[in-house]
């Protein structure tokens, strides 16, 4: 067992997910199964293999530094649950 129920609770909290007690048990089992499965790779000798830092084999894809036209405000707010025509409105963020 690599993942404990505490880990599941912690990760769920960070992801803002509400998980029932039942689900916690279920997820703990599933996550451990996944890690078990992946850990088979630990048996492979990787001494002479460079760590993979990225899954893609592409590199150096850039755009030139040119400003283009921006989205107009109507479209900007199209999906917003709440706005005042200038800003997105969100529940108050308490600072301090």
């Amino acid at each position: 067992m690599i993942i404990s129920k505490n880990d599941v609770e912690h990760v769920a909290k960070l992801a803002r997910l509400e998980v029932s007690e039942e689900e916690k048990e279920e997820l703990t089992g599933q996550l451990n199964n996944i890690l078990d499965y992946v850990s088979k790779m630990n048996k492979i000798d990787t001494n002479n293999i460079k760590p993979t830092s990225h899954v893609l084999h592409l590199k150096n894809v850039f755009r030139e530094d040119v400003a283009k036209e921006n989205l107009n405000r109507e479209k900007v707010f199209l999906n917003a649950p709440e706005h005042d025509g200038e800003h997105f409105i969100v529940p108050q963020v308490i600072e301090s």
Partner: peptide, 15 residues
């Protein structure tokens, strides 16, 4: 940027 408006129970966001 968050623009805080006192007392309205909401914050305004400028992206």
């Amino acid at each position: 940027k968050l623009v805080h408006t006192e007392g309205y129970g909401s914050s305004a966001v400028d992206v």
